[in-house]
Amino acid sequence: MALDKDLIGKRIPTHTVDIERGQLRFFAKAIGETDPVYADVEAAKAAGHRDLLVPPTYLFCADSRRTDGFDMVKFADIDIRHVLHAEQSFTYHRPIHAGDSLTFEAVVEDIVSKKGGALEFLVLLVTVFRDGELVAEVRKSLAIRDPKAGK
């Protein structure tokens, strides 16, 4: 099933996430991060931060904390059984800390077909705002396999 190219430029529902210390500590531990600015408030403050610093890839997890975690697959009419997370990249414009409330706005940036349509990539650009100020951008892509291709 080919993705509809008319999805390019479409926005998926915006959502807001509060960044919590406990989740940052858990995430830092899970990824093996040992820098105390991600887990110890006093160390973060001593390093010039106002609270725990968000680890570099945490925004992917924060963006996943939507009211409906499947809104993207519903939005694009994708069968979740054929989806894989393919790639992600992060651009930070400002430090992000525990206590911040972040708003995630996502738009379909591109749809790329490979292997004669057997594999399609849905590329999303997610802009992240704190109090209306751009703090980060996350570019991610989903790989969608056509189960009928090659049969």
Results as ranks from 00 to 15, higher is better:
120 E>F: 00
68 D>R: 15
63 D>K: 06
18 D>V: 14
15 H>Q: 05
23 Q>W: 09
139 R>Q: 12
52 L>P: 06
106 A>D: 04
43 A>W: 00
88 Q>H: 11
126 V>R: 00
37 V>H: 00
141 S>Y: 05
71 D>A: 14
106 A>M: 07
41 V>S: 03
103 T>V: 14
46 A>P: 00
125 L>E: 05
78 I>W: 11
95 P>C: 09
143 A>L: 10
29 K>I: 06
26 F>W: 08
92 Y>V: 09
42 E>P: 01
86 A>T: 05
144 I>W: 01
140 K>S: 12
53 L>A: 05
148 K>D: 09
40 D>A: 01
54 V>G: 04
52 L>C: 15
48 G>P: 00
52 L>D: 03
44 A>K: 01
142 L>Y: 04
44 A>Y: 00
129 F>D: 04
103 T>I: 07
114 K>D: 07
114 K>I: 04
11 R>L: 02
47 A>N: 10
116 G>I: 01
51 D>E: 14
64 S>V: 06
124 L>I: 10
30 A>Q: 10
37 V>P: 02
141 S>D: 04
44 A>N: 03
29 K>H: 15
134 L>I: 02
101 S>A: 14
14 T>M: 06
74 K>V: 10
81 R>F: 09
127 T>Q: 10
73 V>F: 15
65 R>G: 08
30 A>L: 12
4 D>W: 03
98 A>R: 03
12 I>D: 05
142 L>W: 04
76 A>I: 10
133 E>G: 05
83 V>Y: 12
48 G>A: 01
23 Q>C: 13
113 S>K: 06
104 F>Y: 09
57 T>V: 15
1 M>D: 00
25 R>E: 13
56 P>F: 15
65 R>D: 14
22 G>N: 12
96 I>G: 03
61 C>I: 14
90 F>M: 09
149 A>D: 08
28 A>M: 06
84 L>F: 10
15 H>P: 03
96 I>F: 08
145 R>K: 12
119 L>T: 02
106 A>W: 03
13 P>C: 03
81 R>I: 06
39 A>W: 04
114 K>S: 06
137 E>V: 02
74 K>W: 11
131 D>A: 10
74 K>M: 14
28 A>G: 05
93 H>N: 15
125 L>I: 04
61 C>E: 14
